[in-house]
Design a protein around this nucleic acid. Structure first.
Lengths: 349, 349
DNA sequence: ATGAAAGCGCTAACAG
DNA sequence: CTGTTAGCGCTTTCAT
């Protein structure tokens, strides 16, 4: 049933040579071992004719190196992660590595077992966008000394290099913009709580308020997931409050979609009835009913840097000092923020 | 540097047993080999304590089975493919398989080398959404007898099972809808030519015309890629023609985004100035400036079926008869089609 | 009820 | 310049 692939052995015997010679030639060590031009060409020709391809399982077993890196991501269908996945795969491929992919579905248990699977498959390194709620399993992986880098979500107290956006600054900028446009009752729809991007963004939200000496209404900080459903539900709820916020700071692209759905269901218009700014720019952001003002991240760069960082670690065979890299975000102004009358509290007070 | 993982050997010697016994117990063959309860428990306890994990490289080498499947996709950042990737990964994981991922960037050469890489890594099977322009490399892979299934794009004359949407019927429905709304000058912005989804969709476009005895203006069938840029450029061009089409049938979600960009740049409105229907429904489709009428595919089902089909093949160890599976599409009517005065040619003639 | 040994396909140390 | 051999970690046949 299975076609018999040629092996070093079969080629060697066919040629009346030893496996080592064939192996040497194939690994470009002909000159180092002073192998004669004739045998070299003989071997090269034979391997080409037979379309010989080395068994990477055997190679990996022997070399303890698989040129494969494991990548675990919480939701590949989220366009934010999809675009990062693209750049991770591409950078890795360029550097000679393949990607073993796992979608953890925002579930720590799946993440844990998938990581174990990858370890068993002897990947050379790990890029993880962790769910972010649990660290214990990551800690045990750190102990194995396998190179790894965290992407997007990180743990400040964990000794692992990471690359992420400057979520704090991005959120600060976003909420500042809202405030500068006269908004003082601003809701914040969070993503998964206790994950670093969420924490940093919420902190930015708070600090923007503090800087402008604005009261922080805790009941306006709502939500608990990066998904659309969360955006929908929380917005529905927000619009039922006695005091309805004049603006929403949405912490992810998916949340925004849900929020938009709720807003339009309630017969309201952005930005006339309610303003909005959203984290994550997407190709469609500008084409929404109201073109969305967003905080754009450098998705492709995040993936690229993380991959290079990892492969550096793998190939230099040393742990790099586990620093975090924060990439700047940038605000793309479109039409979802309304400039409203600014009640100057200080002037009144 | 590297922490010494326990191996069968190290465990066996620590326990004063042989590797074979340990292996047997770990593979659940204790009863078959009448291994005493005590040794069994001894071994189980030791492996748990030491957190033993079998080296899958060694296992794969020996067993000729890796529980890994290769998945190559032309553009993971395209939300259509991202959502399929999600369901492929999930179904595979549930059935005990990991995914080796490669993004071919719509480039046959990358596809070819990536497939080779996967073969070298001894994946148990292949799911391929091929670029679709070249078959020769796929043909040689077929000859190796490795289980494979094509996803989305297929080759009718190639002996490989595939799963895809009923693109022909979907396009037929789409263009019929346009025609029923009075449109007779309908542009078709194609994706990558000579790929099956594109061909089938264009054929649907044509046949809808034929059925309604409408003239097919070849100059209205334009474009050559599934990307946004193509949609933008071709729409720009279409809007410069002497006779401007009253409607556009866009063959992909990305093309539509580009078309929308061009249309809005020209100061036109959908559907007042021009109507539109697009293949691929996306979460954002309903929130666009003009909520888009789309042809929705069953993304997650496509991925699931393809994966199960493949794993069936792998585990049953026989080639299934290479049939194609076409999943029905469905039209989601929103606001992007304007009902226009219907010029009844027959009545005039 | 358990062990010894071969071998999957490869690389590298050692030997000429 | 080339070959022999050991061994990566595992499963499985053959012994006992």
């Amino acid at each position: 049933m299975k076609s018999n692939n040629p092996t070093l052995k079969s080629i060697a015997s066919k040629l009346g040579l030893s496996v080592s010679t064939v192996s040497r030639v194939l690994n470009g060590k002909s000159s180092r071992y002073r192998i004669s031009k004739e045998t070299e060409e003989l071997i090269l020709k034979a391997t080409k004719d037979l379309n010989y391809m080395p068994n990477q399982l055997a190679r990996g077993l022997r070399l303890k190196r698989t040129n494969t890196i494991g990548y675990v991501i919480p939701d590949i269908s989220n366009p934010f992660f999809a675009s990062i996945a693209k750049s991770v795969e591409k950078s890795a491929r360029k550097l000679g590595y393949s990607i073993l992919l796992c979608d953890s579905e925002e579930n720590t248990e799946i993440e844990r077992t998938s990581l174990q699977l990858m370890l068993n498959r002897k990947v050379d390194g790990l890029i993880i966008s962790p769910v972010g709620l649990e660290v214990s399993h990551l800690k045990t992986i750190v102990q194995t000394n396998i190179p790894m880098v965290l992407l997007d979500r990180y743990f400040p107290d964990l000794n692992i290099p990471f690359v992420t956006s400057d979520n704090y600054q991005g959120a600060l900028d976003a909420v500042n913009l809202l405030i500068e446009n006269g908004h003082t009752t601003i809701a914040c729809i969070q993503g998964l709580r206790n994950t670093s991007p969420n924490n940093d963004r919420v902190k930015g939200y708070r600090d923007a308020h503090i800087r402008h000496e604005l009261f922080i209404d805790e009941s306006l900080i709502v939500g608990d997931s990066f998904g659309e459903e969360n955006g929908y539900i929380e917005t529905k709820l927000l619009l039922r409050k006695k005091i309805i916020p004049t603006a929403i700071f949405s912490v992810s692209n998916l949340i925004s979609l849900g929020a938009i759905r709720a807003i339009s269901e309630e017969g309201l218009k952005i930005p006339n009835d309610i303003s909005m700014i959203s984290f994550d720019d997407q190709p469609y952001s500008r084409f929404l009913a109201t073109p969305m003002t967003t905080v754009a991240q450098q998705n492709s760069q995040i993936g690229q840097i993380a991959t290079k960082l990892l492969i550096d670690q793998i190939e230099s065979n040393r742990r790099i000092e586990p620093r975090g890299i924060f990439l700047p975000t940038r605000i793309i102004v479109r039409d979802s923020i309304k400039r409203i009358f600014k009640l100057d509290l200080k002037a009144l007070g």
